[in-house]
Nucleic acid binder design. Structure first.
Length: 584
RNA sequence: GGUCCCGUAGCUCAAUGGAUAGAGCAUCUGCCUUCUAAGCAGAGGGUUGCAGGUUCGAGUCCUGCCGGGAUCGCCA
C-alpha cells in the first residue's frame, strides 16, 4: 500500500465512524508543500450533505485521528482543508517499501496496437509518437501485472501495394523484386531503396492517370485473392520491409510481441462477412457492402463502415474488424487499446460500433482509442525536412545520435572511454533525448518537435535524467556497492534534514503516479515524476555531503536515499523505454 | 456548414473541481582546490482567448462567442 493509501485508510475509518461517506476521505499529496505534506479535502463535500459547517467536521475528524502515531501534525486551514504532516518514522517505513503496485487481477491480456507502418515505404517521423507511446504503455501495463502484448499491425494489404506492384510490372522490372536475396543485406537495402524512390512516383502517377489507378485497384484485388505474381512479389516486399522495421524500432528500443499485419486478418474477413450478412448487419449500399453504425441519439453523422468496396476489394475498416476477430480468437483479451493518430478517431468509432453491434466483442471487453497528437515543426505545422519533404525515421534517429556525440565532445565527457563505448553512450543519450521529448507531452495533444531544443541537454530532458542516474551510480560505486541496481539495504535515520525529508517524501509518491499512468494511459505523468525526482535528488546532492560524511549513521542513511532514488529513477526510465548507461 | 480537439509566463509545456496556477528554456544575481557545473541556490515574468452560468470552491464542468487545427463513405 502506498503512503497516501495508508493515510486514506485511516481517514476512511474516521469518516465512517462519523457517519460520513468514506469516498470523501481521500488523502492526497498537498499542492501547497510549504503548508503540508498531505491533505484531505473531504470535510467540505461532507458539510454539504450533513448540513454542518465544514470546519466543525474537519475538527471531528482530526479529533479522532490526532493521537495516531503516523501523524506529526493535523491542522485545519481555510474553509476546511485538513493539512497533514507525518512522522519521520512513518515516512521511513514507506521509503523502504517503495514498489510498483500490482494492478492486474487475473493476469488479464491486453492487446496494444501501436505500429501501423506500411510495407514498401520508409518509416517516417509520423511513426515516432505512436511507437514510443504505445511501447511505453505496453511496458507500464506489463509492469502492473497484465499480459500486455504489442502488435505492430503493418499496413500490408491496401491499394498502395497494387500501385507499387503494377509499377514494377508495367516497367518490366519485376525481377528487381523477385531476384532479391533476403540473406544478402546489401541486396535487401538496395530493394528497399528502390521501393522508397519508386513508390512516391508511382503513387503520383496513379493519382494523375485514372487508368493507372484502375490497374492498381485490380492488382490489389488480385493480391487479396492470392493470385500470382502478386502474391510472391508481395511476400518479398513484405520480408524486406520487415527487416527495415526491425532496425528502426530496434534503434528506438520499441518492442512488439506480435508481428502481424492487415494481410493476416484477411482469412477472417469472408467468414465474418458471411455471418454479418446472416445477422442482417451487412447490407448492400450503392454497390458496396456496408455496416450501418449510426445511432438514434447521434449528434454527428457517422458513416457506415465499408466492408467491401464497389469493386469487391476490402478496406482498412474490414481488416481492422477482422483483426479484432482474430485477436479475440487468439488471445481473448480483456482490453484492446489503439495507440494511433488522433485523426483516426472517427474510423475507430465506426469499427468499435460495428464489433459491439454484431457481438464480435462482448460488452465487458474494453475497447480504447488512445489517440495521439500530431508532431509539428517549430512553425506549428506538420513536421517537414528543410527541403519540405517527410523526414525518414532513420535519419532523425541518426541526427539525434550525432548531436549527442557532439555534446559529449563539447563537454569533454566520456573521454576515457573506448570508441565503441562512447558511441554506445552517445546513442543512449540521443535516443533518451528523442523519447523523453515526446513522452513528456500529453498523449492526445499536438506537440512541437524541436531537435535543436531537445538536444540542448539542459533542463527537462532525457539526458538530464540519465546524468542524474549515472551520478548516483558513480557515487554508489565509490561507496563500494556493486549490485547497485538491487541494493535494498539500510534505512532512513530518524533525524534528517529538510532536504532529505523532501526527497524521501517524493520517493513515496511513486506508486500513486504509476497508478495514474495506468488508469489514464498517460505516460507523461511518469516523465513529470522522473524529472521532479531528479531535481529533488540534485538538490539533496548539492546540499548534503555523502561520501565525506563522518557520522557513519548519517552516511548510511544518505546512501540508502541514494540507492532508493536510483531504484525508482531507473525503474521509471525503464517504464519509459529509456536505457541508462553505466557512466557518461 | 455539422462534429471533435486545442487556446495557460516572451517560447515549449504541466496542473484526479481545491488554498497564493507550476516547471523547463530565455533574461538577471550568486556558487566549481569535496562525491560528474549536462549541476545547485535565488530573482523577475500571468486578467488561464472573451462573456455569462453551475457551487462552499472553476484553468478544469455547462452555454454562447473569438481564434487555430482535425475530420465529415468506396485512400490509410
Amino acid at each position: 500500500m502506498s503512503l497516501t493509501e495508508d493515510l486514506t485508510r485511516l481517514f476512511e475509518d474516521a469518516f465512517t465512524a462519523l457517519n460520513l461517506p468514506a469516498e470523501y476521505a481521500a488523502v492526497r499529496v498537498s499542492d501547497r508543500s510549504e503548508m503540508a505534506q498531505f491533505q484531505c479535502n473531504g470535510a467540505m463535500p461532507a458539510a454539504k450533505i450533513s448540513g454542518k459547517p465544514p470546519r466543525d467536521i474537519a475538527a471531528e475528524v482530526v479529533a479522532r485521528l490526532k493521537d495516531h502515531p503516523a501523524f506529526k501534525s493535523l491542522e485545519i486551514a481555510g474553509p476546511g482543508f485538513i493539512n497533514i504532516h507525518v512522522t519521520d518514522a512513518f515516512l521511513s517505513e514507506h521509503v523502504q517499501d517503495v514498489h510498483l503496485p500490482h494492478l492486474a487481477e487475473h493476469n488479464e491480456t491486453i492487446v496494444l496496437d501501436y505500429g501501423g507502418p506500411n510495407i514498401a515505404k520508409s518509416m517516417h517521423v509520423g511513426h515516432l509518437r505512436t511507437g514510443i507511446i504505445g511501447d511505453t504503455l505496453r511496458r507500464i501495463l506489463k509492469a502492473a501485472g497484465f499480459n500486455a502484448l504489442g502488435d505492430i499491425h503493418m499496413g500490408d494489404w491496401g491499394t498502395h501495394m497494387g500501385i507499387l506492384m503494377m509499377d514494377y510490372i508495367r516497367t518490366g522490372e519485376e525481377h528487381v523484386v523477385m531476384d532479391c536475396d533476403l540473406d544478402d543485406p546489401v541486396a535487401v537495402q538496395a530493394l528497399f531503396d528502390d521501393m522508397y524512390i519508386r513508390y512516391p512516383k508511382a503513387s503520383g502517377a496513379a493519382k494523375e492517370d485514372e487508368s493507372l489507378m484502375a490497374d492498381a485497384r485490380t492488382a490489389t484485388l488480385n493480391l487479396q485473392n492470392g493470385e500470382e505474381p502478386f502474391r510472391s512479389m508481395w511476400q518479398k516486399i513484405r520480408d524486406v520491409s520487415v527487416r527495415a522495421m526491425e532496425r528502426n524500432y530496434g534503434d528506438l528500443n520499441v518492442w512488439f510481441d506480435i508481428w502481424k499485419g492487415e494481410a493476416d486478418a484477411h482469412p477472417y474477413i469472408a467468414p465474418m462477412a458471411e455471418k454479418l450478412k446472416e445477422q442482417g448487419f451487412l447490407v448492400q449500399d450503392d454497390g458496396a457492402w456496408v455496416i450501418p453504425v449510426e445511432k438514434n441519439d447521434d449528434k454527428k453523422k457517422v458513416p457506415p463502415l465499408i466492408l467491401y468496396k464497389r469493386d469487391g476489394a476490402v478496406m482498412y475498416g474490414s481488416t481492422d474488424m477482422a483483426t479484432i476477430v482474430e485477436r479475440v480468437q487468439d488471445f481473448n483479451p480483456a482490453r484492446m487499446i489503439y495507440i494511433v493518430d488522433q485523426r483516426q478517431s472517427l474510423h475507430f468509432e465506426q469499427v468499435f460500433r460495428a464489433v459491439r453491434l454484431s457481438g464480435i466483442v462482448r460488452d465487458e471487453v474494453e475497447l480504447t482509442f488512445a489517440g495521439v497528437g500530431t508532431m509539428n515543426g517549430t512553425d506549428g505545422k506538420p513536421f517537414k525536412t528543410r527541403a519540405g519533404g517527410v523526414m525518414r525515421l532513420a535519419d532523425m534517429i541518426e541526427m539525434a545520435r550525432a548531436k549527442a556525440l557532439e555534446r559529449l565532445n563539447e563537454a569533454s565527457l566520456a573521454l576515457e572511454m573506448s570508441d565503441s563505448e562512447r558511441l554506445d553512450v552517445a546513442s543512449k543519450v540521443g535516443i533518451a533525448a528523442l523519447k523523453f521529448a515526446d513522452l513528456q507531452n500529453q498523449r492526445h495533444a499536438d506537440y512541437i518537435f524541436d531537435l535543436e531544443r531537445m538536444t540542448q541537454f539542459e533542463g527537462k530532458t532525457g539526458p538530464y535524467l540519465l546524468y542524474q542516474a549515472v551520478r548516483i551510480k558513480s557515487l554508489l560505486r565509490k561507496a563500494g556497492m556493486h549490485d547497485i541496481e538491487h541494493c535494498s539495504f539500510g534505512s532512513l535515520l530518524l533525524q534528517i534534514s529538510e532536504t532529505e525529508r523532501r526527497l524521501a517524501l517524493f520517493l513515496t509518491h511513486f506508486p500513486d503516479v504509476f497508478k495514474l499512468a495506468v488508469k489514464n494511459y498517460t505516460p507523461h505523468v511518469l516523465c513529470d515524476y522522473a524529472f521532479s525526482l531528479a531535481q529533488e535528488f540534485s538538490s539533496f546532492y548539492g546540499n548534503c555531503h555523502i561520501l565525506s560524511e563522518e557520522d557513519e549513521g548519517i552516511k548510511q542513511s544518505r546512501l540508502f536515499l541514494c540507492a532508493q532514488t536510483l531504484f525508482v529513477l531507473t525503474q521509471t526510465l525503464d517504464l519509459l523505454g529509456i536505457e541508462t548507461p553505466e557512466r557518461m
